[in-house]
Design a protein around this nucleic acid. Structure first.
Lengths: 205, 205, 205, 205
DNA sequence: GATGAATGAGCCTTCATTCAT
DNA sequence: TATGAATGAAGGCTCATTCAT
C-alpha cells in the first residue's frame, strides 16, 4: 500500500471536521477520528503533531484570512474617514460586512469549528480577540475625532468593547444559524444599518 | 471534626465556584474540588447527588430569577405598547436593562458560571434560550403592529433572532468583563440607546 | 424521643426484607435500608452488628427450623424402614414433604431471602448443605440395606448427591414461584410420587 | 513488547475465567483481571467493550450451542412420539442426556461460569429460561396426547415447570460437582431413568 | 512509512462502617 | 443513646499519545 499521503491527509481532515463539528474539540475522540478516516492512530501522527494541530489546520488559515480582511477594511475606513467624512466611513460598513460574510461563507465549516467547537483550544478567545482589535482601532478613531475637534460623546473603552462585540458576534453567528449566503448578505445589510444607527445614537455623531 | 453540614456545604460551594470558574464545568475535577474543600470525595455525595447537581446549585436559581424578571418586564412592555405607544415601549428598555443588570450583579459569580462555564451541562444553551424567548415575543409584537395597521419594515425571523442575540449577549457580558455595578448600569443605558436606535433604523419605526 | 427499641427494630426488619428481596444481599444498600426504616445509619449499629447480621436475623432461625424438621422426619423414616419396610419409608415422604412445605409457607419471605438473596453471605450454600446432609443419610441407608442383604443397585455417592439435590431444590422452589400454600402442598404430593418412582427405578427397589 | 493481540486476548481470557470462577461476575475485579493478565486496564478495552462483554465471550457461544442441541433433540423426540410411541420418546431421553452432557463437558468452564457466576449479568436466568422452553414444549405434548385421546393425569403447568427444573438443574450440575465426563455420562443415564420413572408415575403413562 | 497494542493517569461515583458530638 | 458527617478504598471506564515491530 503506497499510501497516498494526500489522500490520507484529506480523509483525516474530512473525518476530523465531522467529529469536531458533532462533539466539539474536547469531546471529539481522536481514535474515532482515525477510525472514521480509515487509518491507524499511529499513522495520524505522521500527518499532525497532535490533536490541537489537527484542529489548527482548519482554523488557523481562516483566522489569518479574516484578520487580513479586517485590516484591509479597517484601512479603507480610516482613509475614507480622513479624506472624506464620518458618514462615508459609516457607509463603508455595508461593504465591509459583505466582505466578512462572503469570506465566512467561503469557509463555512472552518468558521463553525472556530466559533462553536474551539473550547479547550487556544482559539477559544478568537471572537474576543477580534473585538479587542476593533476596540483598539476605535479608540484611535476617537483620538482622531478629538484631534479634529469634532464633538462627540466619548464612551468608556469598556463600553466600546462590548458594543463592538455586538457586531462581530452577530456577524459570525450567520455561520451557525443555517443562513444561506444570500440570507446572510441580506442580514449583513440589516446589521450594518442597526449598528450604524446604534453608534450614531451613542456617540452623537 | 464531627462535621457541620452547613459549613462543609459552604466549603464545597466555595471550592466548586473557584474550580468551575477557573476551568469550566467539564475540566473541573471533582476530586480537586473536594480536596480544596477539605473533604473526601465520599463526603461530597452527602451534599450533592452528582457533579451536575453541584453546578445546578449555582445556576438554576438565577435562571429562574432572570426569567421572572424577563417575563415581568416583557409584560410591562406589551402593556405600555398597547396603552400608549411604541416610543413608550422603547423608553422602558432603559428600566428593563437596569433590572437585568442589577440582578446580574446581585448574582455575579453565578452568572459567570452560567455564561462561561456551562459547556458540558444542560445549561449550555441558556443565552440562546433567552434569545429565542425574546424573538418569539418580538414576533408577537410584529403581529400586533400589523393588526394595528402600523407600517414597518418587517424583517425575517432569522434576522430578528440574531439582532436580539446582540442585546442579550451584550448585556450578560458585563458579568464577564470586570465591570463594576455602576459601570454596568451606565453601560445598560448606552446599550439601550444603541439597540433602540438600531431597531428603529431597521424596522423604520 | 424515647425511641421504642422494638418498634425501631421491626422497622429495620421490614425495610431490610423489602430491600434484600428486591436487590439481593450485596446490591441492597444499607443506608437506603436505614432511610426507608426512618433511622440513621448510626442507630442501625445499635440493633445489628453489621449488614450480614441483619441478613442472618431473617435466615438463621429458618435454617435451624428446617433442619429440625429434616432431622425429625429423617428419624421417622429410619425407624419405619427398620421396623417395617422400604415401602413404608417411601410412604412417609409424602408427610415429610408436607411438613417441609408447610414450614416454608409459615416463613415464606425468610425462605425467599435464603434461597434467592443470599449470594455474598455465608448462607449461599444452604441448599447444597441440606443436600449433603441428606446424601450422607442416604449412604447410611445404603449400608443398612447391604447389612440386611437386601439387593439393590447402589449408585455412586456423587450421583446420589445430585439426585437428592433434585428433591430439595424442587421443593424449595415453591417458595419462589408464587405458589399458594394449597398449590404447593398439592405439588409436594406430585413431587414425592415423582421422586419415589425415580428412586425405585434407579435403585431397583 | 509490541503486543501480540491474540496472546494478550488469551491472557485476558485465562485471567478472567480464573477470576470469574473464583469470585463470580460482580465480585470479580476488572483491574485485578488485567493485572493478572499482565496488561493495563486501558489495554483491556481494546479487546472487550466492557466487563459484561468479557463475560459474554465465555457464555454466549455455549448458550447458543446448548439451545441448538436442545431444539434438535426436541424435534427428534416429537417425531418419535408421533411416529411411534411415548415409550420411544422416553427412550430417546437417554441419548438426549448424553448429548447435553457431552456438550457440557466440551465446554466445561464456560458452563461453570454460566451456571454459578452469572449473577449480576443478563444471563442469570439461563437455567430458568431453558426450563421455560421445555415446559412450553411439554404443554404442547400434553395437547397432542389429549388430541389423540390418550388418557393421562395432566398436572398444572406450574408443577410441570418445577418438575422440569429438576432435570435441567440436575443435568447441569455435573458441571459444578467435579464429575469426570465418564461419571457424568453414567449419571446422565441414571438421571434419565429417574426422571422417566418420575414422569410415568406422575402422568400415569 | 505504517501499524496498533499498550500506556497510565485520569474521570465520576459507590458504600459499609466509624466516631465526635 | 442517637446522630449523621465523614471516611477512603474501590469500582468500571476513557483517551491522547507512544513505540517496538
Amino acid at each position: 500500500m503506497p499510501g497516498d499521503f494526500n489522500k490520507t491527509h484529506n480523509r483525516i481532515l474530512v473525518s476530523a471536521k465531522e467529529n469536531f463539528l458533532a462533539n466539539g474539540y474536547e469531546r471529539a475522540n481522536l481514535r474515532k477520528i482515525c477510525r472514521d478516516a480509515g487509518i491507524t492512530t499511529g499513522a495520524f501522527y505522521r500527518h499532525f503533531s497532535d490533536k490541537e494541530a489537527l484542529f489548527a489546520a482548519f482554523v488557523e488559515p481562516v483566522i489569518e484570512g479574516i484578520r487580513k480582511i479586517y485590516f484591509d477594511s479597517q484601512k479603507d475606513c480610516i482613509r475614507l474617514f480622513e479624506k472624506e467624512s464620518i458618514l462615508a466611513a459609516y457607509d463603508i460598513t455595508y461593504t465591509a460586512a459583505a466582505s466578512f460574510i462572503n469570506y465566512i461563507f467561503d469557509n463555512l465549516d472552518n468558521f463553525k469549528l472556530l466559533l462553536t467547537c474551539a473550547d479547550g483550544t487556544k482559539y477559544f478567545s478568537f471572537l474576543d480577540d477580534m473585538v479587542s482589535l476593533e476596540t483598539d482601532e476605535r479608540e484611535k478613531v476617537f483620538e482622531l475625532l478629538s484631534s479634529k475637534n469634532i464633538k462627540f460623546n466619548r464612551i468608556p473603552k469598556k463600553e466600546s468593547h462590548l458594543l463592538t462585540h455586538t457586531i462581530f458576534s452577530s456577524m459570525f453567528e450567520v455561520a451557525t444559524h443555517d443562513f444561506t449566503r444570500e440570507e446572510a448578505l441580506q442580514y449583513g445589510h440589516t446589521l450594518s444599518a442597526y449598528c450604524n444607527a446604534g453608534w450614531q445614537a451613542v456617540l452623537g455623531i
